[in-house]
Design a protein around this nucleic acid. Structure first.
Lengths: 345, 345
DNA sequence: TTGTAGGCGTTATCAG
DNA sequence: CTGATAACGCCTACAA
């Protein structure tokens, strides 16, 4: 059974010292091993089916080859798309990706970062951004500082860098652009699903949307700002609630702060006999691929998801010492059949 | 700067031996450390902000705490959903998840498994199943055997266990059920997108669908069995091709072997002015959540994706020695608005 | 260029 | 119950 084969075995088999075998197999800094010996060692390694022990190497070198990625829910297409970008970049950099999900449980990020610190991950990417809760964010910040303390690098995706390298998403601006676009289509009475008390990113979207609208002279009344969990079910529930209240009758379009929520809203509307597009406009945010290909095509603000992951990875791999770098990334409004314009004429 | 703090430091600070400190902090098998000393050690550890080095522990213990998961593309909702199930189960088992994507590049699975073997991952889950290519599958099998050689456990999701524990999906049966359901709706002329030469799982779906149809007296002509990549774009391209040929006119319903492909097909149909549902039925396979909430709701065979991940994890954590275990898991036909029944009356 | 030897941070074996 | 002291598998000055 192979695997139990150690470098010493290879060295012995090749008739060289442990050091030489090590240098021949993995090129150390000063690359210099006699071509003949080098050959002998490789042959011996192959013959014995030697497989270097990554753990031992990590320990000897004092650093791992793994990159930690923290998301809220990998099944959420938003995070899945970002993860794909990170995975590709990590692969290219020769790093293994360690994925951890918070399941949106508060406090989990800290636990995960701590765990990653224990495992001496080389870097960690926080894809979820800040939570908006001062105390909680402070704890995360502390955990990240501690992680840096052991030589780890950090990057976060979100508005607030939490003192780290970060990919700054134009959530406010994107939502404002969307608001203007919808207003341009003729919509005047809006409702917003989600963003209250949630993560900063979502709060920013809602804020950007509402503020821009106010600037255009059509404020959104408080009772049409519905709280909702950032999930498909959250969107569904909020839309259902909206439809049950009398207020719904006057609403011409609904903005769900994420596409996934918008999908839930779509289902709720359909279940209530409301035709999305004809009777009511619905827009989301994120630009999830899968939701673009159906009828009605969802109006949204498309974010360069894979790019976000790639940039976050690049930032996470920068020399730990350097000053935090911020990379701004914007979204683009995509008008779909879900918002053809207001119903009455 | 914390992190550089080692167990020896803690031991010294607490005035005990290294061994005792180790036993006090992490309970070894024979748990017995005087309550007073135990307290002293913990206090010292806290004071010094000691953080155990996972790498060193792994090396000393001779085993890691990480579980490898190999998927083709984490951005694909099918794999994302399975990954979510695995992530939850891994978390519960106290393991870290190492995610690797093949990007559908042939040969990548072997490289990844080898890499995972180097890192001494405790177990690995192959979510992609067999490729259908004998040579390639043989290489994967060999890599897995080697992995087991170093004490690793394995489980694979798919029809063919590749000699390992496996979650056996009823792809054939599910597709056959779907065929019967569509036939029951009145559809008689079908086209199939994908499954040719692809992974075994997809080939089985196509085979199950076509065979069942043949049994019902309506064989699918070869020119209506279109080859397609198992992606959104693959589905789009295949549908476009179908629509361009004259044969399309006679087709009443299209079966894409994955929901993601079906989404692409939907887009292609719409682009060509074909109304899905009214003019043409479209069905997929997988039961991707996001695709269920739109109009027309996609007819599909819903797989218990999260469950698949959970089971695969359970299998991967079984004692490595045991005989391979097979867990069959079936899908359920879900009829949506995308296949209301054939057009002409 | 090649070999020797010390060390990385823990766990585990075996005496006290 | 506690404490020395070997491993663990590999890297790397330092020496030859």
């Amino acid at each position: 059974m192979p695997g139990q084969v150690t470098l010493s075995d290879v060295a012995r088999e090749a008739g060289v010292s442990l050091a030489t075998a090590s240098r021949a197999l993995n090129g150390s800094a000063n690359r210099t091993v006699g071509e003949d010996l080098r050959r002998r060692v490789h042959a011996a390694a192959a013959r014995l089916r030697y497989s270097p022990d990554g753990i031992a190497q990590a320990m000897a070198r004092g650093r791992t080859t793994s990159l930690g990625l923290v998301v809220h829910d990998i099944a959420d297409p938003y995070f899945a798309a970002i993860a794909a970008g990170v995975a590709a970049a990590a692969d290219e950099a020769g790093l293994m990706l360690t994925l951890a999900s918070t399941g949106r449980r508060p406090g989990r990020e800290v636990e995960i970062v701590t765990q990653l610190e224990r495992q001496r991950a080389r870097a960690v990417i926080l894809a979820g951004g800040a939570s908006g809760d001062t105390e909680s964010d402070g704890a995360v910040r502390a955990a990240l500082d501690s992680f840096r303390g052991v030589g780890g690098a950090v990057s976060v995706v979100g508005e607030d860098g939490l003192g780290s390298n970060s990919v700054v998403l134009a959530n406010r601006e994107g939502a404002a652009d969307l608001a203007r676009a919808l207003r341009g289509l003729g919509y005047r009475r809006f409702a917003v699903l989600g963003g209250a008390g949630g993560h900063t990113a979502l709060a920013d979207r809602r804020g950007g949307f509402v503020d821009a609208l106010a600037g255009l002279g059509c404020a959104v009344p408080d009772d049409l700002l519905l709280d909702a969990a950032p999930t498909r079910d959250g969107g569904h529930a909020a839309m259902s609630r909206l439809l049950e209240t009398g207020a719904a009758g006057e609403v011409e379009a609904v903005f769900a702060v994420t596409d996934v929520m918008a999908a839930g809203a779509l289902a709720a509307a359909r279940a209530a006999g409301v035709r999305v597009g004809e009777d009511l406009g619905v827009a989301g945010f994120d630009g999830i691929e899968a939701l673009q290909d159906v009828v009605p095509g969802l109006t949204t603000v498309r974010l360069p998801l894979a790019r976000i992951g790639a940039e976050a990875t690049r930032l996470a791999l920068r020399p730990a010492a350097a000053e935090p770098e911020l990379v701004p990334l914007a979204g683009e409004v995509v008008l779909g059949a879900s918002t053809p314009g207001p119903p009455g004429r």
